[in-house]
Amino acid sequence: MTFTQLSFYLFSAVLVFSAAMVITIKNPVKAALFLVLAFVNAAFVWMTLEAEFLAIVLILVYVGAVMVLFLFVVMMLDINLDRMREGFTRYLPIGGVIAVIMLAEMIWVLQKGSFSLANMPRPEPKPDGYSNTKELGQVLYTEYVYPFEIAAIILLVAIIAAIALTLRRRPGVRRQEPSAQVAVQAEDRLRVVSMKSEQPKRGDDK
């Protein structure tokens, strides 16, 4: 067994374990943290496949940004576990049917042999100085430039739609305008009046 194989088995074991914990653990915050662990281990497995760009981007985007916001929301929710479990028996048959269908689909796809060792040969180790990032960039901006741009537009539309859906304009809301607050000058708030100094009259301080 080589070191790469050993690390593959180690990372995969942790990945499967943490993925199982995500759906079985009761505490939603812990589930989110196990999902983070699963992502990190998936990135490690990709790293053993020499896909270092994708591995680092997985950590950067999913672990560093998406899951942070996810955790942020989950932490603030007050989830009542008893109420969530209420309809368990009622939804069990339909859930079970869906699970069986998905299982059958997966078995069917995997049995067709498209993932067999013959169809998935071991990738050739890349020579020294091979830059994964550069290769990916060159393909993305030449061969796949239109799919890439379309994906970007779809994401942009999704961002704008998310903002448009959640934006509420309520009348009569008092709000601060930081730009006005920052731009304020001393003259706007303070008037310096020049006046003659007064001599206190005798007996005034009584």
Partner: peptide
């Protein structure tokens, strides 16, 4: 090769400790 990305990925992980500590 992807040193800059790696650094960015690592610095983005530090926030977990803070969130988890607070929670």
């Amino acid at each position: 090769d992807a040193g800059l990305l790696y650094v960015l990925a690592m610095t983005s992980l530090g926030v977990y400790g803070i969130i988890v500590a607070g929670w």
